[in-house]
């Protein structure tokens, strides 16, 4: 496929670059892992296959071979050869088709999967864009006009009459979302109770590296210099200004700001999709509760993956289960 118009910030993402954090590389991967994995399941891919992450304003793409795509995540208007393209279902594509992605109406990050995944060469065992490393090579920069992304040709002549229930994506931009967090290593340095009493907003000066929160200044009750230590996606850091910064998918692997909390993994997708105007609250929970919610989310995704793989088998071989 060819990028005709690059969009605001379009990147390639798989589930991230494990094993290189010790050398300073961010984990990266999608901001909304749930939507990204579902996009892959819809076209019969593995969880880790590389997709396009589209941020707020989408690109225009021309397909250079037959394939199947799916769009999930933020509710985005897209046009396929001029006709509105459906979300949350597989869409057969013919060579020469053009997909125009427009602005997200609900949420920020949309995911475009292609059958077999984007076949770009891996860098350090991953196809996620490398954060804070500048070069003109692929995966060291956002996508530009005229970039060519290889895709395996795949022709599908059958009909597709189904789509996923949009309610699966109701976590995106719901009103008054509650984002849960567990205690961070330096929670006792702060007046932490005040965090839950306030309504928060995400600043527009936020990106894949971090979300700056607007709401109030968190009071420090223990002044101490922190020695730089490992940090991860979801860490709620309190810099000297007192205004929290939550590290996101491209967060650096080590950081020197003290951490009040850690957003639970089950709520990271919700957090990543909150646009600057929306209010939300932060609420502390136990690690046991965090694990329980993670397991139930994983169970749901595993079931969805299984159901969609049956769907694919049925469409390809006509065998009903």
């Amino acid at each position: 496929m060819i990028i005709i118009e690059e969009g605001l910030h379009t990147t390639i993402q798989d589930l991230g670059r494990n094993n290189y954090r010790s050398l300073g590389f961010s984990l990266s991967g999608p901001m909304d892992k749930t939507a990204m994995r579902i996009a892959n399941f819809l076209v019969g891919n593995d969880d880790n296959d590389a997709v396009l992450e589209i941020s707020f304003l989408g690109p225009t793409i021309e397909f250079t071979c037959d394939t199947i795509i799916a769009i999930t995540g933020a509710k985005m208007t897209a046009f396929l050869n001029g006709y509105e393209a459906p979300l949350y279902r597989p869409i057969p594509i013919n060579k020469g088709d053009t997909l125009q992605c427009r602005a997200a109406k609900k949420g920020i990050y949309s995911y475009l999967s292609v059958k077999g995944g984007i076949q770009i060469e891996e860098k350090l065992s991953s196809r996620s864009m490398i954060a804070r490393y500048n070069s003109e090579e692929f995966l060291s920069r956002k996508l530009n006009n005229d970039d060519y992304l290889p895709v395996q040709p795949y022709s599908f002549t059958g009909k597709i009459h189904w789509k996923l229930d949009h309610q699966i994506f109701d976590y995106i931009q719901k009103d008054n979302a509650t984002i849960h967090f567990i205690e961070g290593p330096q929670i006792s340095w702060f007046n932490a109770d005040s965090v839950s009493e306030k309504r928060w907003k995400v600043s527009s000066k936020s990106n894949r590296m971090g979300y700056r929160l607007i709401g109030q200044k968190i009071e420090t009750i223990k002044e101490q210099q922190l020695l730089t230590e490992p940090v991860q996606f979801g860490a709620i850091q309190i810099p000297p200004s007192g205004e929290p910064i939550i590290l996101m998918a491209d967060g650096q692997p080590t950081g020197g700001y003290p951490k009040l909390g850690q957003v639970i993994q089950a709520d990271l997708a919700t957090l990543s999709q909150i646009t600057p105007a929306k209010e939300f609250t932060l609420e502390k929970c136990s690690i046991e509760s965090a694990m329980k919610q993670l397991h139930s989310q994983e169970k749901f995704l595993a079931q969805l993956k299984l159901i969609l793989s049956y769907k694919w088998r049925e469409m390809l071989h006509g065998t009903k289960l």
Partner: peptide, 17 residues
Amino acid sequence: TEAVIGFTTLVVYFDPM
């Protein structure tokens, strides 16, 4: 998955599944 260190800390990342 990986062990990452800071000045006085070590974090082990793992797959909770």
